[in-house]
Design a protein around this nucleic acid. Structure first.
Lengths: 259, 259
DNA sequence: GACGAGCGACTGGTCCAACCAGTTGACCAT
DNA sequence: ATGGTCAACTGGTTGGACCAGTCGCTCGTC
């Protein structure tokens, strides 16, 4: 077993992690007040400043609302938090939450498809060449490191799409992946088996064929979405099974409670 | 003019705002080191603890990297920040940045379309009824407050779509809107003129017709995207003009550098 | 001259203690 | 019932001290 760098974690980060977990698991319900800073400091055995730094991050993440003189209240993160919270929702008491991963992969597909479409229309000449080169080198790159191969591939596309919102959302999704590298690597490898698709996507973009690019991107990105059902039969069996074998190449939302 | 609550801003928030602005405007370039905490404290005329609280938020937002013993370095937010940063990118030196708003509205459309599709498939009976009621009451609600009308309308859809990633991204986009309420209200009102479309969307979802729901959602959400070009002829005239009058009802990406 | 150990200055991390500034609710006078 | 007062409690801010890493210079050794 290879040695890895030890992770140093500041006290405030540890406090933040515990408080965040308490909020997202619902251990402290929305509307409920957190204990006073002085109490938290004593409970955690740290200085009050460390607690305050952690609370600032919670506030920044949209998990709590702090009011001078009043109490610090927990917010409903489903209404108040942004996409940056997603990575932190994956960790559940019984391992990664399948439903959160499914959500993230669905979003990844939607964004990826639109990114492909936009890239086909907006990429300038140098971007087209770069993307085409990435498409042609994908097979070889994948052998070296599948993870870095499509990270580079998609980074070029996202660049070319010229949309800062997609770019930032893409970053948020990458953090989900990084937070569960081992599992996600297996799931995402499903995408990578479609080597021909990657080349086809690159060629479509280089050609400026938006609809073809979108279609191929959809095909590629659906693979991982299907795979996550296999790797995680966990919490939602009904959902997992209906994700079945031969998804509609265009759309395959997961039915639920439909007649 | 009605009275509004006065906003108190903690010192750390003010420091955070200034540092954040310095980073996103590129005033301090990625890779560059921020001044030491002690220096910042003196410069801002506040205590070092306040500076540290601000830095924690910057770190949380993915704008800087702090290392004990070493310097605090600025990151490239285009690579390291998440979607939560989007609201803070809108403010430019010459008013709201048209390109950021365009990006946000593009994302809003993509997410909205997929939300409509998913809602049509996944909504349970009570959700269908609620959505149908919202669709029927939309015309009346809109007269009272257009803003709250479609906030409620879409909130129901997002709920029904049962995808936490879309929900959080939707929250992030709402923050963009809230941060520029006056302008965005004008732009988004373009969506609301399509009253019939809202009813049609609700009916499609209630009927479980995913493709119809997606198509109508796309039509509705394209209106604001077109409008932002009119309201903001500002920074990118070439882009704005090509967004012209009769957009392809299916897709209308903004060409740029295409052959 | 090249190398490397050692040291010192500098940076962020943590703590303690105190006080300021709001909020809340109980109490009391009107 | 109303409104004012006040005490207790909560977050906000400050000062100063020290710990714990990093970085770069210096100096001795080879």
């Amino acid at each position: 077993m290879p040695f890895v760098p030890v992770r140093r974690q500041p006290v405030s980060a540890a406090v933040f992690a515990q408080l965040r977990a308490a909020v997202v698991t619902g251990e402290v319900a929305p509307g409920e007040a957190l204990p006073p800073e002085r109490t938290l400091a004593e409970t955690f055995g740290v200085n009050r400043h460390a607690v305050r730094e952690a609370l600032k991050r919670l506030e920044q993440a949209g998990l709590v609302e702090v009011a001078q003189g009043g109490a610090t209240r927990v917010l409903d993160f489903r209404r108040s938090a942004g996409l940056d919270l997603l990575p932190h929702l994956v960790d559940g008491p019984d391992g990664p939450e399948a439903e959160v991963l499914r959500s993230g992969l669905e979003m990844r597909r939607v964004i990826g498809v639109e990114v492909a479409r936009l890239a086909a229309v907006r990429a300038d000449e140098s971007a087209r060449e770069r993307i085409l080169a990435a498409g042609r080198g994908y097979r070889a790159e994948r052998l070296r490191s599948g993870r870095e191969a499509d990270r580079g591939f998609w980074a070029d596309l996202v660049d070319a799409a010229d949309n800062i919102a997609f770019r930032l959302a893409y970053n948020s999704l990458l953090q989900v992946i990084d937070a569960h590298a081992a599992l996600m690597d297996e799931v995402l490898d499903e995408d990578r088996t479609d080597v021909a698709g990657h080349l086809e996507l690159a060629e479509s973009v280089a050609r400026g064929d938006a609809e073809s690019a979108a279609a191929v991107a959809h095909r590629i990105l659906t693979a991982a979405l299907v795979a996550v059902g296999r790797f995680m039969p966990a919490t939602a069996p009904a959902t997992a099974t209906s994700l079945g074998d031969e998804p509609d190449p265009t759309h395959d939302p997961t039915p639920r409670g439909a007649p």
